[in-house]
């Protein structure tokens, strides 16, 4: 449905997007991940024909964004980071205006306005001025605007930013409900959101593509090394404890997490395929310290993300 081939966007003295390629299948929800300023918005703006790429091509529903922008725009619903609302319009009036812009008219327009208002839970405020709406309602009106012409592709730029937890939850449900009918790309820097909603992830950092895979695969891929959380109770300083742990066979790295008087917490990475829990426990007990915690730390997507983007930054 969406095919991005080697797009770049360069400004004088700065490369916002550098040779990014990925594909999105019909009906998928894809999370677009990256730290702030990574190039997420720029990539989305290229896909929506807001700006052309400096190099490379992108196809949406088979149409080139450069050669046939009108066809692409007809098939895309776009919610920018700040919903593009006119404060002086009523909600229904605004949706009608956008519907007309997207080429709807007559009965069909009226029907769609009613449908999307229902779907996005804004029917109860349809006679209210946009400027009087709360942030959550504004976001939902923005979403209603994006789906009014029933587009094949939906592009949502940080749809949950600035909302309270309840509104975030509602918005996520709404987006999940839209999947299937629409192919969705949504950008975010909130990782649990991706785990909850998206099937696939595209991670970019500093304008470059870092990874593109399913959420599950990404997590597995990063599980090459195990991480163990360990807390030791002892009167002595943390240095000798750390050195002792580092000498345990199979341990590759010991990181001090927290240190109070009498209690130190570490995160221990082991070499691939080595189970070191038993050896660690024995080492601690033999030294005469108390072992109060020993647990397997599973890598969250957040850590995967940090690892991926950190290596990129170092390189």
């Amino acid at each position: 449905m969406i095919k991005v081939e080697g797009i770049s966007k360069r400004y004088p003295g700065q490369t916002a997007v550098d040779n990014i390629s990925f594909e999105v299948e019909k009906g998928q929800i894809v999370g677009f991940l990256g730290p702030n300023g990574a190039g997420k918005t720029t990539t989305m703006r290229i896909l929506t024909c807001f700006m052309p790429p400096t190099a490379g091509t992108a196809h949406v529903a088979g149409f080139d964004v450069l050669a046939a922008p009108l066809e692409v725009k007809r098939r895309i619903g776009y919610l920018p980071e700040t919903p593009p609302l006119y404060p002086e319009m009523e909600v229904a009036e605004y949706l009608q205006f956008v519907g007309k812009l997207k080429g709807l008219g007559g009965d069909q327009l009226r029907k769609r306005v009613a449908e999307v208002s229902e779907k996005c839970n804004v029917a109860d405020v349809s006679k209210k001025l946009v400027s009087k709406l709360s942030k959550g309602y504004k976001q939902r009106v923005g979403l209603a605007q994006a789906i009014i012409h029933n587009p094949d592709v939906l592009i949502l730029d940080e749809p949950t930013s600035g909302l309270d937890p309840k509104q975030i939850h509602e918005t996520r449900d709404l987006i999940k409900g839209l999947a299937g009918e629409h192919t969705i790309i949504l950008s975010t820097h909130i990782l649990p959101e991706v785990e909850q909603i998206c099937e696939r992830v595209v991670i970019i950092s500093r304008g470059k593509l870092v990874a593109t895979d399913t959420v599950e695969n990404l997590k597995n891929r990063m599980h090459g090394s195990h991480v163990i959380g360990l807390t030791v109770e002892t009167e002595i300083d943390c240095r000798p404890v750390q050195e002792k742990l580092e000498r345990v066979a199979g341990v590759s790295r010991v990181i001090l997490k927290e240190s109070f008087t009498g209690s130190h917490s570490f995160e221990i990475e082991s070499l691939q395929g080595r189970r070191v829990q038993a050896d660690l426990a024995r080492a601690v007990v033999e030294a005469g310290w108390n072992l109060t915690e020993l647990r397997q730390v599973s890598l969250s997507l957040e850590e995967v993300f940090l690892q991926l983007t950190a290596t990129e930054a170092a390189a």
Binding site: T48, C49, F50, L70, E71, K73, R74, I76, Y78, P80, P84, L85, Y86, V98, L101, K102, G103, Q145
Partner: peptide, 9 residues
């Protein structure tokens, strides 16, 4: 809102 106008067909 210009973004809306420009990304409309």
């Amino acid at each position: 809102t210009l973004e809306l106008l420009i990304t409309s067909p």
